[in-house]
């Protein structure tokens, strides 16, 4: 994130309800903005795997095991699935669920001013 980059108006905040997303175009790039618990997260809508629309698939959590080996479902709706191959990315960090240190989708700073939602890019 470059603090010197300009803010781009995306929408009125009440147009993006909690749990929702919108996809917009900023400076020629497709950007997805998610509202998760009234925090806004912006990611490139481009999958680093094979170029699919990474932010257009379902939101999901992850199935993992607790210390007793029981399956638990955690981090509900923290991941967005690329609909092409099901790669999952954390909407806050852009990092791949399977390979967090190797693959990430670019993320962008969001800002709210006077009920208006902006992305810095």
């Amino acid at each position: 994130m470059e603090p010197n980059e300009p803010l781009h108006y995306v929408a009125e905040t009440d147009e993006l309800e909690e749990g929702g997303r919108l996809i917009t175009s900023i400076r020629g790039r497709e950007i997805a903005v998610f509202n998760r618990e009234n925090e806004y997260y912006a990611l490139a809508n481009y999958c680093v795997h094979q170029g699919g629309p990474a932010c257009e698939g379902r939101l999901s959590g992850r199935l993992t095991e607790d210390e007793r080996g029981e399956l638990v479902y955690e981090d509900d709706d923290e991941f967005v699935c690329c609909p092409w191959h099901g790669w999952e990315f954390n909407i806050e960090t852009g990092r791949s669920l399977a390979h967090p240190d190797r693959y990430r989708v670019p993320t962008y700073e969001t800002a709210v001013r006077d009920g208006k939602l902006y992305v810095r890019l």
Partner: peptide, 9 residues
Amino acid sequence: TPTDTGKAE
């Protein structure tokens, strides 16, 4: 599979 859970569409 990712298809059956809807993660891949």
